[in-house]
Write a protein that binds this DNA or RNA. Structure first.
Length: 297
RNA sequence: GCCGAGGUAGCCAAGGUGGUCACGGCGCAGCUCUGAAAAAGCUGAAAUUCCGGUUCGACUCCGGACCUCGGCA
């Protein structure tokens, strides 16, 4: 069990804002270790496209939850949550400070809020069977299993319905949402105005292409990974996969990546902007002060 | 210049024997989110190139202008 007084520092924000660099900088100053909160960096082989930090950039700061999963297998938020909390406890036990750093809101909040996820793992064969059904059929099925939850669920969202059926068919019903934060968390946010972000994203993309983004996807393809799987990773992986299949040309690939990146930014901000706890940083000095205060409390 | 095709939202695009608020998709805006989350879903804003004619009524029919595409010169 963890002590609710255990402290966790979270550095979050949309893509391309320099979270990793700030994380390393602060971790070095405050005797910290980094837990990456990124739904793509967990996979081995997704390096350039996921903006994975390089060993040099880590500057000796230990990083957790990077390269822990095979891209051939689906990694889930439940696994992430378990591992992240475990890592954080271990770091604290060693008298160091855990920094949760990343841009995957779902992953971040699963840890900071201590969501109690239903302990029903995903059932691949059940899902495959249910995926053939229409939302209305799924809704009917769910209603028979758990009428109360059916009242609350989005009846058009097949994916959610399938998950609900998956849970209800094992647990009898879908349990109500519950949370139990395991840490006292300081939320630090990094952001830039949208036009500036777009510019950063475009420049970063050119850099990545020069560093071998296309080759990275070709290598992943040889693992082998299906085109479908590569496309599911999204963004650079999706568009480079399209490009390698000649579904789009080079300029279309690039503009597709940029456009989808901006969509990602908005999606991330959609979670973050309503979170009043986040301190949106002006510079790293401000981060330093906030962290010092937080740790001295 | 001539012949042909066409001009419907920011882009792509359906339409009809003339008859309430014009199908979709992308993009855009807002929202939901608890084991695929860089996922999935919901809501919304937004259009008949222009001018004239026929008609009770035209985006739809007729004429003209302008523009685009293809062919011929």
């Amino acid at each position: 069990m963890s002590n609710p007084k255990d402290k966790l520092i979270t550095i979050l924000g949309p893509t391309a804002t320099g979270k990793s660099q700030l994380g390393v900088k602060m971790a070095r100053e405050f005797n910290g270790e980094i837990i990456s909160a990124d739904s793509r960096q967990v996979y081995r082989g997704l390096d350039i496209g996921s903006a994975k930090i390089t060993p040099q950039e880590m500057k000796g700061v230990p990083h957790h939850l990077i390269d822990i999963a095979s891209p051939r297998r689906v990694f889930t938020v439940a696994q992430f949550q378990k591992l992240a909390i475990k890592s954080a406890r271990k770091i604290i036990l060693n008298n160091k400070t855990p920094f949760l750093v990343g841009g995957s809101p779902f992953y971040i909040y699963s840890v900071t809020e201590g969501w109690k996820l239903p302990s029903v793992p995903r059932n691949q064969s059940l899902r495959q069977r249910l995926e053939k059904k229409k939302p209305e059929e799924l809704f009917k099925m769910l209603k028979e299993l758990d009428a109360a939850y059916a009242q609350k669920v989005d009846p058009f969202n097949a994916r959610r319905l399938i998950r609900a059926i998956e849970i209800a068919s094992v647990a009898g019903q879908v349990p109500p949402r519950q949370s139990q934060p395991a840490f006292q968390t300081l939320f630090l946010g990094l952001n830039y105005p949208l036009p500036e972000l777009k510019d950063k994203i475009a420049r970063r993309l050119n850099q990545r292409l020069k560093s071998g983004l296309i080759e990275e996807v070709e290598t992943l393809r040889k693992i082998p990974l299906s085109w479908k799987r590569l496309e599911d990773f999204g963004l650079e992986y999706r568009w480079v996969a399209y490009y390698l299949q000649n579904k789009v040309d080079y300029p279309e690939m690039k503009s597709g990546i940029i456009q989808d990146s901006l969509k990602l930014v908005k999606h991330q901000l959609n979670w973050f902007k309503k979170d009043q706890r986040i301190h949106w940083l002006k510079d790293s000095n401000q981060a330093r002060d906030l962290i010092r205060n937080f740790l001295n409390q």
